[in-house]
Design a protein around this nucleic acid. Structure first.
Lengths: 331, 331
DNA sequence: CTGAAAGCGCTTACAG
DNA sequence: CTGAAAGCGCTTACAG
């Protein structure tokens, strides 16, 4: 550095290169508009000064922050981790910074986090968190691109990338009907998406003329501990189910562990269905029948939709990435 | 809002309240220095205009970004998730934004992420990622507070909050010696910390006059799939181990599942030790003997250390949160 | 307790 | 392809 202890600025680079700050700025943000020779001189000057751009100043002047807020309910054994990981990797590779917001299951912290994102003039908000009318209003007032992931409401706040949870629930019901199962036990986590899957399941199950399934509920993040409780309570039911439909693969694993500890054979005496196709689902013994969602694809589609929106292109507001039921050993 | 479509600025609030922008700024950042009546007028003006501060401008002018970069190798079933979750919650509650950086296991992306943090004038970097000499240099040149979590090197880059992985390895060895185990199988993940634990284990094990343990390695993030491979390879060893020492609870779970599938009784025919005391460790059947680290405490201590550093107070550069071996059913 | 004014470090029409 | 200059929206000594 020139003056040790002082961080060099654009102006230092410009003086050293014998050009204006405008040209250095152009070189950094749009190298192709700068003449070859000039570019090289500037490159050297940047090297020699050890210049690091101040993105704060850049964002303020250019009204583009290169910051995207990523909102997610929680981190611990979350079904979204793959999506968030892919998201963070791709955004970072594209020179965008990820602001992490943990919303929890309720919407109050979400509002707060959106305000923060707006305060930092985030270029967009990408969320797997809960949404309500207040949030809808807030987002519209702020005119900030808002991408909902992992769901596909009829009327997205802005853009949605996901799949129909109701259809997924229906598919599971159909699969169990075809498999000859009679008495499902439906374990539902809190949260609107889990409710929609269970709703779809019951809808289809009843439509097939079957008796209503028994039910239980768990609290996100659903752990092995809850699986233990669910299993114990289930064992006290008058009519024992022949299959448990779980809201996540982790819960399914927990139930398998419990069932095995109780010496039930799976799937003969009790079948288990998971959700999400976590890596372990294919590696558990028995392997777990589940619904696969391509979390990384959700991330990619979300980023692509964002790019379109940024360029002002018109695009689909609801992007369906679908899902796929994977039949394995557990059911 | 006053002018629909235009986001109100500090100046709009000031005019409406009949004060200067300086006073409004003071009210927002330091309310107690503003007179009661003035404060109330400003509060009303902010409400009426729907003012949202521009943190970009604030950070640039005040040279304080209220942004902290949190660096972590990966998100998928990471041992750090508890720490990161606590970290994000506490920072957000304190009005600080979290920049998420996924470093991977190698150091190259870490360098990139540190540069980004510096470009955004982050107030600090908090990292569980890998560190090398280049990073050390970079951090020192940038004069940015840097907190290493989950480790406790003799010479931290800046501040470290963690525990001695070597001592943890030693403790496990001692525990197994006391338990009468003879032939441990040591499964080590890549990464320096896992290596230190395994190093400590072997050191102590050999010091007790025992024969060197058999070994295997896995790649982070270690999954059930790797557990399957490790178990299969282990079964082909000439002398079968009586205990497997795993680098994580997830790996331990996978090995238990495999061992049970092979109808080995645990711990009688094969004992298993995990690491990290994930929630599942206490809920698996059998429950898993493991080493507990208080991840949330690491987060709290890191934030406290940061606060001290910001206030210019002198404090311990190495903060040891310790660990605790928890004997359960699996060993 | 409050205001006028300089300044934080960039970007971007505009003109050439 | 490049430069002079205005401006992005705040904060903070300084003075009163």
């Amino acid at each position: 550095m020139d003056l040790p202890g002082v961080t060099p600025k654009l102006d230092d680079v410009a003086r050293r290169a014998g050009v204006s700050t405008a040209t250095v700025s152009r070189f950094i943000n749009n190298p192709e508009v700068v003449a070859r020779g000039t570019a090289e001189t500037i490159r050297v000057a940047i090297d020699e000064t050890g210049y690091t751009p101040n993105l704060l100043a850049g964002a303020l002047a250019g009204s583009r922050s290169r910051l995207v807020a990523v909102l997610i309910p929680n981190l611990t054994s979350s079904i979204f981790n793959d999506t968030i990981e892919a998201m963070a990797e791709e955004l970072t590779a594209a020179g965008t910074t990820v602001m992490l917001g943990l919303t929890g299951i309720e919407t109050d912290r979400t509002t707060e986090l959106i305000r923060t994102a707006v305060s930092r003039r985030a270029d967009a908000i990408i969320s797997t968190g809960p949404v309500d009318d207040a949030i809808r209003d807030l987002v519209h007032r702020c005119r900030i691109p808002f991408i909902q992931m992992w769901e596909l409401p009829d009327d997205p706040v802005d853009i949605a990338v996901g799949f129909s949870h109701r259809d997924a629930g229906r598919d599971i019901a159909r699969f169990l009907v075809n498999g000859g199962y009679q008495r499902p036990h439906l374990v539902t986590a809190n949260g609107t998406r889990a409710a929609m899957r269970s709703g779809g399941f019951k809808e289809e199950w009843l439509a097939q003329g079957r008796a209503a399934p028994s039910e239980a509920s768990v609290v996100i993040p659903s752990s092995f501990g809850q699986a233990r409780r669910v299993f114990a309570e289930m064992r006290r039911l008058e009519t024992q189910p022949d299959v448990v439909v779980c809201g996540s693969d982790y819960l399914a694993m927990g139930l398998i562990v419990e069932a095995q500890a109780a010496e039930l054979r799976i799937p003969e005496e009790l079948a288990v269905v998971g959700f999400g196709n976590a890596a372990v689902a294919g590696e558990m013994r028995p392997t777990i029948t589940t619904v696969d969602i391509d979390g990384r694809r959700i991330a990619r589609e979300a980023i692509a939709a964002l790019l379109r929106r940024t360029r002002g292109e018109e695009g689909e507001r609801r992007i369906d990435v679908g899902f796929r039921l994977i039949a394995r050993e557990s059911a």
